[in-house]
């Protein structure tokens, strides 16, 4: 594995249009070697377009893109040797067995992992002699990951790698990808699963309508999420009292839930429950939740669709 000093992936002012439709509108980011960068966003946000430009499948309309120091669109063999790709669409669907398919793809690389090692990495040892056409969708997806790993890549691109997995298989794939990063592999993935990004990513970008609405190391995003959300059902009178007499900042939901953001949970809860007891109000469905990546995600996307620009 070559040591590179700069970013493994560098994107500057990337734009991509299909006719009049702008799929990617001026985005910039870096992914450092060994990092796991997760790109989140609603369908149609431009995640796949972005990752496919980095993989060399699509040409940018403008902007600069560098992956391991290469311009991906030139399709240099030296570049391909070091990049593993899992496409959104499952590819291999052959009459070959799982083992033969991995052998075949392994033969494309000068320096490949052994088929046995890859079978173990993706947990397909028991299916090695099965014909690819006849294995399950989840197993085919794992084979795709195996194909991406066989060339010992320095960078792994994963476009929604675990869509369609059962929870256990998903967890196993995360462990596998996590282990790869321990070997120094840089990973860029797109996903719809917040837990996936939370488990795997060291940094996260949220993409909305072709722009990056929020980006940063995972810890920074999570520190933004410090604080909790308290929600409960109470009478309208009680809610009004909280708002007017005690300056609680409440959001009244259509489902009858009152919600408040809290940075001092102990104090807020104490006050709330004391008042409720005094007023003999039954706080049904009282919940305290930490704000999760999902909350941040939804806020970011909603904020974007309201204002039409990143926060």
């Amino acid at each position: 594995m070559e040591i590179i000093s700069g970013p493994a992936i560098s994107v500057r002012g990337l734009k991509k249009s299909y006719g009049d439709v702008a799929a990617v509108r001026d985005i910039s980011f870096d992914v450092m070697p060994g990092e796991v960068f997760a790109l989140l966003g609603p369908n149609g946000a431009g995640k796949t377009t972005t990752i496919e430009i980095l993989e060399g499948y699509r040409q940018a309309t403008s902007g600069e893109v560098s992956v391991l120091g290469f311009n991906p669109t030139h399709r240099m063999p030296e570049f391909r040797e070091r990049v593993g790709i899992v496409l959104q669409q499952t590819g291999a669907n052959t009459y070959l067995t799982v083992r033969e398919t991995l052998d075949l793809f392994g033969s494309y690389y000068q320096d490949s992992r052994s088929t046995d090692e890859v079978l173990e990495l993706v947990g397909l040892q028991d299916q090695s002699a099965a014909v690819v056409k006849r294995i399950s969708g989840g197993q085919k997806r794992r084979l795709d990951v195996g194909i991406a790993l066989i060339g010992q890549p320095d960078i792994l691109f994963l476009d929604e790698p675990t869509t369609g997995f059962d929870p256990q298989a998903r967890r196993a794939s995360w462990e596998m990808i996590h282990n790869l990063t321990n070997l120094g592999c840089t990973v860029m993935l797109t996903t719809h699963y917040m837990e996936e990004a939370e488990f795997l990513a060291s940094s996260i970008g949220i993409m909305v309508s072709g722009e990056i609405a929020l980006i940063g190391p995972k810890q920074n995003l999570q520190s933004k999420s410090q604080g909790s959300r308290i929600s409960f059902n109470a009478t309208p009178q009680f809610n009004e009292m909280l708002q007017t007499d005690f300056k609680f900042s409440l959001t009244l939901g259509p489902d009858g839930f009152s919600t408040m953001e809290s940075t001092d949970v102990a104090n807020d809860l104490y006050q709330l429950t004391t008042l409720a007891k005094q007023q003999s109000v039954n706080l049904t469905n009282l919940q305290v939740k930490t704000r999760t990546l999902e909350d941040i995600y939804i806020e970011t996307v909603e904020n974007y669709s309201r204002t039409g620009r990143p926060a």
Binding site: R80, E81, L87, Y108, Y109, Q110
Partner: peptide, 12 residues
């Protein structure tokens, strides 16, 4: 089926 695309992503 995406197989050609997958092959195109390799050094072959």
């Amino acid at each position: 089926g995406g197989f050609l695309k997958q092959v195109y992503g390799t050094p072959l």
